[in-house]
């Protein structure tokens, strides 16, 4: 009896010791991973305030000797960075507005609406998820060139004006709303638009917000289509402008990495701020999609 008890306590002690060892190991690994993951961001920030001589040192410094915030102003002067910013804002805003309007209405039609061929048409929407812009860009480019839409805001926005993903996610949420709310509103004489804007949208606002955040970041960070359709500087967006900075500063052997990094900081600022403010929504957006 006694020996058995002893072995049990011994086993417990060993388990506790093991668990503690695992948790210490976890902390060490977690911190190591975080340091590696954060390093490129740190390096960008640090480089963006170094002087040119310091950037060109063969022995890199891990804290700048002096802070040169004028690098940021220099980028603004040397290329039309402010213009890129405005273009990106207009393009992203346009995409957002269009996707929200087309998405909310279509999601209503495909969830609460009743009409012949509803399911078949919804399959048409879902099928579009399998046809990326990387396949279809050639005819769209030709079409837009024909319509004189190259180097215009409309040209940047139009192919992204509707998102099957947005419709799909919203439809799922709208379907979870009980029909009785809609019936009650209808009896009160609320019209279709009222039902959508005053009942469905407010009731689903957290999903709507999450999905819209995803749309915003993908719009802000989009590169492929803007690169194709906007060749002139007048409609260039940040992502393309940033990638071109290297060419502006003499290609591979550029000496201006401090200024390029300053540009990179400015380009990602809005999205990173959003990420920290709405972290919860952004993380749940991804896990929600994964759970489907």
């Amino acid at each position: 009896m006694l020996t058995e008890e002893r072995t049990i306590t011994e086993r417990n002690e060993r388990a506790i010791r093991n668990r503690r060892a695992i948790s210490v190991l976890q902390w060490v690994l977690a911190i190591a991973v975080t340091v590696v993951a954060f390093f490129p961001i740190y390096w960008m920030l640090i480089t963006s305030v170094k002087s040119q001589e310091e950037v060109l040192l063969l022995q890199p410094t891990f804290w700048p000797k002096e802070f040169h915030f004028e690098n940021y102003a220099n980028v603004m002067h040397k290329v039309k960075f402010a213009k890129y910013y405005v273009n990106t804002v207009i393009m992203t805003a346009g995409i957002l507005v269009c996707q929200i309007i087309t998405g909310v209405f279509a999601a209503y039609g495909f969830s609460k609406g009743q009409f012949k061929g509803k399911n078949a048409l919804f399959m048409v929407v879902l099928g579009a998820l399998m046809i990326p812009l990387q396949v279809t860009f050639i005819p769209i480019y030709v079409m837009f060139a024909h319509w004189h839409l190259t180097d215009t805001y409309l040209g940047l926005i139009l192919p992204e004006a509707v998102s099957p993903y947005y419709i799909f996610m919203l439809r799922q949420t709208f379907m979870s709303i009980d029909d009785s709310y809609i019936d009650a509103a209808r009896i009160d004489g609320v019209g279709k638009v009222g039902i959508i804007t005053r009942i469905l949208v407010p009731m689903c606002r957290s999903t709507l917000f999450t999905v819209t955040l995803v749309t915003f970041t993908s719009g802000w960070n989009s590169y492929f289509w803007p690169k194709i359709i906007a060749k002139e500087e007048s409609h260039r967006v940040l992502t393309v402008g940033l990638a071109k900075l290297r060419d502006t500063f003499a290609g591979q052997g550029t000496m201006n990495n401090h200024e390029i990094m300053a540009g990179a900081v400015m380009a990602i600022l809005p999205v990173v701020i959003l990420f920290f403010v709405f972290q919860k929504y952004m993380l749940s957006g991804y896990s929600k999609a994964a759970m489907k």
């Binding site: 961001i41 802000w220 992502t239 393309v240 940033l242 990094m261 900081v265 999205v271």
Partner: peptide, 10 residues
């Protein structure tokens, strides 16, 4: 959330 083009230049 760091745009690919910023990440690429980094």
């Amino acid at each position: 959330y760091v745009a690919m083009s910023s990440a690429a230049v980094i």
